[in-house]
Amino acid sequence: MTHRASIMFLTLVALFLIAPFVVVTGVSFGASNTIAFPPKAISLRWYQTLITEPDWLKAIGLSLLIAAIAATISVSIALAANYALWRTGSGLSKLVFALGIGPFLLPPIILALGASLFWAEVGWYGRMEATIVSHGVFFVTLPLVIIARGFASLTKEVIEAARMLGATETQVFRTVVLPLIAPYLITGFALVAIISVNEYLIANMIAGFVVETLPIKIFNNVRYGYSPVVASASMLFVAITVTALLVLARLTDLIGLLGASKED
């Protein structure tokens, strides 16, 4: 590919990727009761509806709450697995790692059905706690892999230096390991939170009829006759997701975290 051809190709791809959201943005700022693009008149009424109607507010609140706790659970598991692997290198910790990759590879419907059967048996079917735990466990893969990069960046000599200066195992963790892997923990947390906020299928099969998260509410709205408020809800989502990633990009080296740095 020549340079110019490749830039043109990328521009087309970018158009394909961004166009749907331009249209949705237009619809969300429309004044009419029906979905129309380009909008005949601009108004903020659908955003107003979104933040004043208790139903929508509740869905937003639930989604954020679930995401925050699920991300905490996910990062805790990923940190624990990585610490055990780093500290002991034992077979158990390698097994944990292999297990942790699993949820990423399996179709979500399988996870969702398994989880809903499991929670029904346990008696938590339809409870928010069940959604939180399942999200936390199923989304562990990304933090697992990202935090592993963090541990790989710790050199053996830095840890030995801390030990020789009198740090106990706990102190080494608190004063050296934790500060050095913090960017990786933050990235892992943010990604799980974003994925959890956006996830539909698992949340719906575990507790969808009781715990109506934002994606579930949007889906139900689209299915049973929709109004432009769905567009404003979607754009709110896009805004949250993109903002979170932009903040992340400022705090950390995203390209490096993906493993795409040349010096890696």
Partner: peptide, 8 residues
């Protein structure tokens, strides 16, 4: 240490 192993 050879790498100095300072705490970055």
């Amino acid at each position: 240490f050879q790498s100095l192993a300072l705490f970055p």
